[in-house]
Design a protein around this nucleic acid. Sequence first.
DNA 1: CGTTGCATTTCCAACGTTGTAGACGGGAGT
DNA 2: ACTCCCGTCTACAACGTTGGAAATGCAACG
Lengths: 347, 347
Amino acid sequence: MSTLRDVAAVAGVSIKTVSNVVNGYEHVRPSTRTKVEAAIAELGYQPNLAARNLRAGRTGVIGLAVPELRFSYFAELADAVLAAARERGYVVLIEQTGGHREIEIELLRGPRVSMMDGLLFSPLGLSAVDTDVLDVPYPLVLLGERIFNGPTDHVTMDNVAGAVQATEHLLSLGRRRVAVLGAHKDEQMGSATLRLTGYRQALQAAQVPFDPELVVFHDGWHRTDGADTARELIARSVAFDAIFALNDELALGALRVLHQAGLRVPQDVAVIGFDDVAEAQFAMPSLTTIDPHRARIAQEAVTALVERIAAEPTRDPAPRVVTVPTTLVVRESAPPASLAAGSVAAS
Amino acid sequence: MSTLRDVAAVAGVSIKTVSNVVNGYEHVRPSTRTKVEAAIAELGYQPNLAARNLRAGRTGVIGLAVPELRFSYFAELADAVLAAARERGYVVLIEQTGGHREIEIELLRGPRVSMMDGLLFSPLGLSAVDTDVLDVPYPLVLLGERIFNGPTDHVTMDNVAGAVQATEHLLSLGRRRVAVLGAHKDEQMGSATLRLTGYRQALQAAQVPFDPELVVFHDGWHRTDGADTARELIARSVAFDAIFALNDELALGALRVLHQAGLRVPQDVAVIGFDDVAEAQFAMPSLTTIDPHRARIAQEAVTALVERIAAEPTRDPAPRVVTVPTTLVVRESAPPASLAAGSVAAS
DNA sequence: CGTTGCATTTCCAACGTTGTAGACGGGAGT
DNA sequence: ACTCCCGTCTACAACGTTGGAAATGCAACG
């Protein structure tokens, strides 16, 4: 790897002049510029970013910490973050925490962050007792549920409103026995609790009684958990004509079990999920769900982080809290009210 | 952010002594070490990695370039690479190329790589004419199909053997009219062509005639393409009793169309995919497929890259080409021979 | 008591870059 | 002719770190 020094020697000018050419400084005589550019081409010179970073005190790298990339939700989020960051000239260093509290803390505290200008962090293992861990000396933007009330920037989806939309849609189909899969016990402010809150709000608004028997608690939120919770629901032999799965993976797992149990979707049971992962669209039947607009979340988060990075000297601008609205996406598993009526009548 | 200088001032020692403590140098008097550690704790000192990197000439960062993270295959690969890299003390900078040739070239050539000790690169837009682009002055390991015969390290799955396994399995179920979805025209050495080769080899070995009418060519490899190709196959009104989709997404898309067309899987049509993405297991029916062992591919690739980074001074050890074997994963869409017979008889 | 050897610590330079200040030279203004 | 200005270029220092050489202090040795 050649350096500015090498280029300078070949071009017969000073190191600084080469640097000036590389950085587009305007007061360089055209003939000199040409000479330097020739030397750069000849040597295939590439600026050394480590040196530049050291000099400039910034790295052009932002970190993204997520639990696990292999879960569609985070993969799609990472995709969107990468794209948004690229637009602003940043590259992204991705870390997986596995959702483990110790790893999350180690990451927030560790020296790796000194390689980044800021961090987008999607916490999972941390809980309310850890709010002091989030008081870090570098720009930090949290993604996901607002578990913490500290002075940290935060971008999240509107879980409650989304759950209201989902529940209202099921009610609009005439369903009155709406089961919930994947509620969490003893959770403070996670998405599960927020979504359950939205569910109850919608029931109340429609004056449909809340039946605890219809709520299946379960910690995991993956497809197997969807299958497990659906089986449990069926085993309870309580009447239900709709399922609100608190995320799409649960819904997809449930679809499978319903099918095996001989229950038709949506005729016997309407199913709605939450997240609008790519597979939802291709499930059989395709899954009605809530789109949290991941791309916008990523955009907002990167924007907030970049502004925070730029504003750093001033310290303490008020924490920015962004809530991105959700949208109902109607597909086959809980079709539009008009169609559903038709289907039910036809069956 | 405090520096070694600050810590040294507080502890009343020289900068280098602090450095020695930080780096675990053994000849430091215990009392001194304690003093320094106290100062470090007091100031919350974190080494500046940019400076360390400049000094050391290495960054502890490896790059991973993939087409798009939101495709499960790459998300799962990235997950595995991150894990393998972490074990070896590396962090991973992920770049998305979108599969575009210009972006891939820009990445290989650009200054961003000077931030990395090496690059894992999964090319998609590049073709055989670009082999000179791969002659880069830093450690590079290619992932995916071995399109290039250059002197570049390469880790790939055994596409041909996998396709043979898939086809043999379908033949073992007694199917003789095995359609192929997603073949590529005019491709040199991509996975599509290799897998089609395996298919033909297996047919030949079993003395089943090859019928071009059963091969559906199509460039895209996503679910919609699976649906499109399945529709085309049905429209051809050529007899078929099994489908070998050249990847899982195609297979999943096809499942949907088969279902809509009233064809039962596996009774009327046995379906097999390739890749064993997470969803395969949860499809309805669950998808028989070929597991390429992504985790092992990631392991091998990171290992090769790390060794290449370490070996750099010597230059030119022979290119390492690793082919990870594939495994047949039997599920419902093309069940074990014994069961299939049962199902068919029962139907 | 001078020497040697070793543990411990310090000093200096360098990694490659860029900001700042200043040197140099020629044309315009007085 | 002298100054001043401006365009162009260069010298130097610094970002924070670590390798290597050199300095220091101490104890054991002959």
